[in-house]
Design a protein around this nucleic acid. Structure first.
Lengths: 160, 160
DNA sequence: CACAATTGGTTAACCTTTCAACTTTCTTAG
DNA sequence: CTAAGAAAGTTGAAAGGTTAACCAATTGTG
């Protein structure tokens, strides 16, 4: 049994701290930078993520719930988000025939145009600030390490 | 020169996407989970980070600017944050003799007690949801990969 | 079939973050 | 020495996010 102090707390080793800090710093700095790079196009990271999801979906539409799940947001937050994007003309709400409680978020023409214009810049940004700074081995290792963590965390989502 | 389409955009390969998504998902899910684990103690991630920084500082105090830099926040945001924590009795502001524009954020007794009480739980949380899910090799690799990315991003902070 | 529980989604109130404007003190160049 | 500019921090308003309460449609159960 490994413990470092009398009260049983296993503090982080130097090495563990370094990995943890690195992850933390990158995750914050990176989001911040991507946000900045999207700013000239009048989009936020959240806007962009919605656009991606809708763009990749059948008929450019998704049920609100599915979109919320896909983007890891609460229903409420998504509802506000979509309202804003609706006001910006990027998206519109449409009723769902098969389930009359339901709504689709649908990409508008303008939303689709925006997506096509912005995507290349966003990818460039992701490359410049992340992907291209890592080797192929790094990328493989990153995915191999983090995928199980993501899995673990997802399984905890919405427990009591 | 590698490019995948006629307009010159280098889209992400499958492998690149997987790594990118994994990082993205972990970073969001993890922050969310840590926040939840701190909730019973009445602290947010931001509160906790301030407490850590002050706890580890000489005399349990830091200049507002330094604290803002250390926690990657804007001055304004930190100012609001400290006001809240001041109201919660975790921290107090103190004038700086050597530079009369300046202020220190100082840990109160209650802040220090809170820190000592909460830290073990927080570390356990970080272990449970991140560190202990990774092998030693993973941790080394993670740090080796991400530290340069963090460096790159830090160097961009606050450019035009 | 009726009614309880669940699901899909919105809304209002509240809290946090951002943005721009401002005050005060410090530094520096003439 | 003084005036211009920079640095430290705060503030208030607007935008974004969270929470809890809510309505309406659907599903499941006796």
């Amino acid at each position: 049994m490994s413990m470092d102090t009398e009260n049983g707390t296993r503090w982080l080793s130097e090495e563990e701290q370094r990995a943890w800090r690195a992850h933390l710093d990158v995750s914050r700095l990176l989001m911040h930078q991507l946000e900045r790079d999207l700013q000239p196009f009048g989009l936020t990271n959240n806007d962009y993520e919605i656009l991606v999801n809708l763009s990749e979906s059948e008929d450019h539409r998704m049920r609100m719930s599915d979109l919320a799940t896909a983007t890891l947001q609460s229903k409420s937050r998504l509802s506000h988000q979509i309202t804003r994007m609706e006001n910006a003309g990027l998206v519109r709400r449409e009723n769902c025939e098969s389930d009359r409680r339901g709504l689709y978020a649908v990409l508008t023409e303008h939303g689709w145009d925006t997506m096509r214009q912005v995507a290349p810049h966003h990818v460039a940004s992701v490359r410049e600030h992340f992907i291209d700074l890592l080797g192929e081995a790094d990328l493989k290792a990153l995915h191999a390490s983090l995928a199980p963590v993501a899995q673990h965390l997802r399984s905890l989502r919405g427990r009591a």
